[in-house]
Write a protein that binds this DNA or RNA. Structure first.
Lengths: 147, 147
DNA sequence: CTACAAGTTAAAGTTAACTTTAAGTCAAGC
DNA sequence: GCTTGACTTAAAGTTAACTTTAACTTGTAG
């Protein structure tokens, strides 16, 4: 078992496609050594870094945010357990916020829709951040960005 | 106060941009009458339909799915409270699934990362649907589609 | 020596949900 | 008669996160 992994091996073991790995490298999320032929070789530690990326995505972080997080890791040594735990410590709040929003929506299904008040103007459940209140063109509205 | 609303009025009252309303109409999610000049006019009931769309999006439905749901409404009369409630009854399960996934991720932050097992191969938290197990090129993988 | 599998790059394509732009119509006010 | 504001359409642009494609290079097996 070699110490360095090919891109195909990393793809198989992480479940992340080779094309995605190249894309991550291009975005600066991961790095690789090169063989004489220009082929990528990954140290075993890369797998954990990739796992972190997948995990963070599930939590809802964008690749830009993940890149920022990864930038906080020490670059003079291989990160250890405490380093990873430190990065993910802030996620709890984010997850809780999202769960709270979903709970609110769930309550709204029976209460808001049930009572017939399904109106964006008045209903705080459908319109918690007073979306209807914004005037002017303003910044581009992204549904995914709102999540 | 007129019985029919212009697109600007509907946009202001719903918080949904005019361009989005036209887009929804193009997608068959909403409909409008036209004046002699070809301008759109909306009956008051359209506001509730639009509110439903916004609400459904927050729950996580795609516009395609919402279109399907809206197709289940009676078309021989204006839908009433019971009709709307019926449509949204199935959302609870969906919301609960998503909440469960988030809870799992939250637990994984302290357990999985904390214990140092952050590995896509072995960890059921980061890899609940055995993502790493899929072989071959397979269908296109969309992060958003997995949510 | 020739196949073949596996790797490389750059550039273009994909998806959802809209927004922006360009070019034009129409009624009302001055 | 002309400007203004609100509206129309069709088509192209935007964003994130990748995938696909095309053209090419390398190491290894036979």
């Amino acid at each position: 078992m070699a110490d360095l992994l090919t891109i195909a091996e990393v793809a198989r073991r992480s479940g992340v496609a080779s094309s995605a790995l190249r894309f991550y490298e291009q975005r600066g999320l991961i790095a690789s050594q090169r063989t004489g032929a220009g082929h990528r070789r990954y140290p075993r530690a890369a797998l954990r870094r990739i796992a972190f990326i997948v995990f963070a995505q599930k939590v809802g972080l964008s690749l830009d945010e993940i890149a920022t997080e990864l930038g906080k890791l020490p670059n003079n040594r291989v990160p250890e357990r405490a380093d990873w735990a430190k990065l993910s410590s802030g996620w709890k709040h984010r997850i809780d916020d999202r769960i709270a929003e979903l709970e609110r929506l769930k309550a709204g299904m029976t209460q808001c829709i049930g009572c017939g008040c399904l109106s964006l103007q008045t209903c705080r459940l459908a319109n918690p951040d007073d979306r209807a209140g914004r005037g002017g063109p303003g910044p581009r509205y992204w549904v995914t960005g709102k999540r």
